[in-house]
């Protein structure tokens, strides 16, 4: 019933990272009310941490068992990881997104959004800066008009 899926590149490392993060949450869960009764406020978080840890342990074992018989060179493995998890568009988009949020605090919504759209569209659309600038300006204008003026929503 449970179909066998090939291991995703970097799955074991990712699972181990999730386990480490869950253990941190588990330490915080123990602090709530220790190991007292099931109706105590700490029981639910501890139970969920246990479920996540058990599931992740199973996923880690599966990832270990599904390891290819022949180890590929590290460069090949990193390339496969990049293609599957962080292909160039995603690798570029995440820092641009974080910079956008910082920009919202520093220069306000209109300018930060215009620059974010301009840079993102130029990067994803491979060039065409004039078209990108027109689309970015038009989008900011429409969003400002629609949300600020019609929906009366405050913009960042």
């Amino acid at each position: 019933m449970t179909p066998s899926h090939p291991r995703h590149p970097g799955e074991l490392v990712f699972t181990l990272l999730l386990i480490a993060g869950t253990l941190l949450v588990g330490r915080e869960a123990v602090r709530i009310s220790g190991l007292s009764g099931p109706s105590s406020p700490g029981f639910g978080p501890l139970a969920m941490v246990a479920v996540v840890l058990l599931g992740l342990a199973y996923a880690a074992v599966r990832a270990l068992l599904d390891r290819p018989a022949e180890r590929e060179p590290i460069v090949v493995r990193l390339r496969r990881l990049g293609a599957a998890v962080l292909p160039p568009p995603v690798l570029g988009a995440i820092p641009v997104l974080v910079l956008y949020l910082i920009g919202l605090e520093l220069v306000g919504f209109v300018l930060a959004t215009f620059l974010f759209l301009l840079v993102s569209i130029v990067l994803l659309d491979r060039g065409r800066p004039i078209r990108a600038a027109l689309v970015a300006a038009g989008t900011v204008g429409i969003i400002w008009l629609l949300f600020q003026q019609i929906f009366q929503v405050l913009l960042p």
Binding site: L97, Y100, L101, L104, T113, F116, L117, S120, I121, L124, D125, V135, T139, I143, F147, V153, L154, L155, P156
Partner: peptide, 20 residues
């Protein structure tokens, strides 16, 4: 509509929505 234009707009709308 090309995704290169659409997806950044989705992100902006998500930001506006989360702020609201």
């Amino acid at each position: 509509v090309p995704k290169a234009i659409l997806l950044p707009i989705v992100v902006v709308l998500s930001v506006v929505g989360a702020y609201a």
